[in-house]
Amino acid sequence: MMQILRPVLILVGKDILLEWRSRDLVVSVLVFSLLIVVVFNFALNVTPQRVTVLAPGIIWVTFAFAATLAMNRSFVREMEQGGLAGLLLSPVSRDAIFLGKALGSFLFMLLVEAALLPVFGALLNFSVLSFTLVLTIAMATLGFALVGTLFSAIAVQTRSREIMLPVLFFPVILPVIIAAVEASSASIGSEPGVGLNRWLPLLAIFDALFLVICPWVFAVVVEE
């Protein structure tokens, strides 16, 4: 266990330090997300009557696009001076490398979402203080981080890396988006609890399944 945990923490620590130094990713992802919200407001004409119907969709489309942006950048950064190659040269299990990168992206996205959620609540006028909403966000973001880390490791190695990540990511992540939207509208809406006992287990199954599969196939992605 320690053999996996130690390198994972070293890797996450490095990613946090790097982001703290430059702060370019967190700023660009936040600005990008706010832009999406503004565009949605006019595209969908979000009125108070329709907000509980529209808000979950807006939140999750924004989070999903922000996640692809963040994870793509995270691997591009590893490619710049060959950091990923250096990482692969160290005697650390490939599982730990995958989990370290995924955990870094997970924490980063949680930070971004924590910053965005109050803004969404204010702009779209709904209450963000809900335990189930926070739980939904954590579980769905874990799914994003696992699948996204795997596919960005593939996408950065191919031509047209910017397009390859969303093309691979969105079809696979669709159940997470459906579950997250439904669970969020149950949390925001007037009748909490309806449907949650269905969507939260679905998210849990998705997370558990890909927590097992992704590290296994990641070894195939990174070894040439």
Binding site: L150, Q157, A179, W199, L202, L209, I213, V217, V220, V221
Partner: peptide, 23 residues
């Protein structure tokens, strides 16, 4: 190598997609 990964991950996902749409 890459397509094998997509072939595995994509197929495992199919039942989850199906049930999420059913619900």
């Amino acid at each position: 190598r890459y397509s094998a990964v997509v072939g595995i991950v994509g197929f495992v996902d199919v039942p989850i997609v199906y049930y999420s749409v059913v619900w």
